[in-house]
Amino acid sequence: MDATTIFFYIFAAGAILSSVAVVVARIPLYSAIALILDFFFFAGLYVLLSAHFMAIIQILVYGGAIMVLFMFIIMLLNLREEHELITVRTHHAVAIILSMSLMVMMGTALNKIVDMNAVQAATVGTTEDTLVAVPSRVPGLYGALDEASLEQGFKSKVSKWSAGTAKSSDGKYRPVDPSAPTVVPTMLSGGTPEHPEPASFGTAEPMSLLLVNRFVVPFELTALMLLGAIVGAVVIAKKRL
């Protein structure tokens, strides 16, 4: 058992326990604190998935901004302890049975995405930095991937596209034109004299380059949406609607 496995099980147990605590806590403030804890466990899981940028954003946006808003409203309304969970009504039982059965259904379906036995068989005797593609229902899905092979796979994808030898199917990673006078910083800048090394997977650099290149329109629309949300929140929360 390596460190990643141990940390995965620690974070997973913490995430499940704290999300159950969010649901069963009787005082809303305790629910909010459990939710903050839950967000931190999720951030840990994101780090295990090499999503370093998303882990930081998770803590800043969810654990910081959104939960401050929740705590502020809870304290502003000064809600007392409620006794709704003590009286088990019929629809509680129905809701719990419904969600548990859906969970079992989804779990059995997800269990078939990657064939565990194929992963075990494919990883036997391979070296550390070997990508192991296993038969799965999702095209292009790797069954087992460690940090080194993830980095290697990402860099080889980036360098292939930047050399123009292989174009991605939807053309989302444009090959860098060497004759162009100004080199637009794309994710493919690895290989040019200015950027000898491509950026690592999941760090801020490739994320920001994607956000201002391919996803620039939704990124700017997000700003408009946040403006609308701010104005809407102020208008709705006014004393006289």
Partner: peptide
């Protein structure tokens, strides 16, 4: 999914 498909 992003990690296991090596796609950001």
């Amino acid at each position: 999914f992003s990690k296991y498909r090596i796609d950001l």
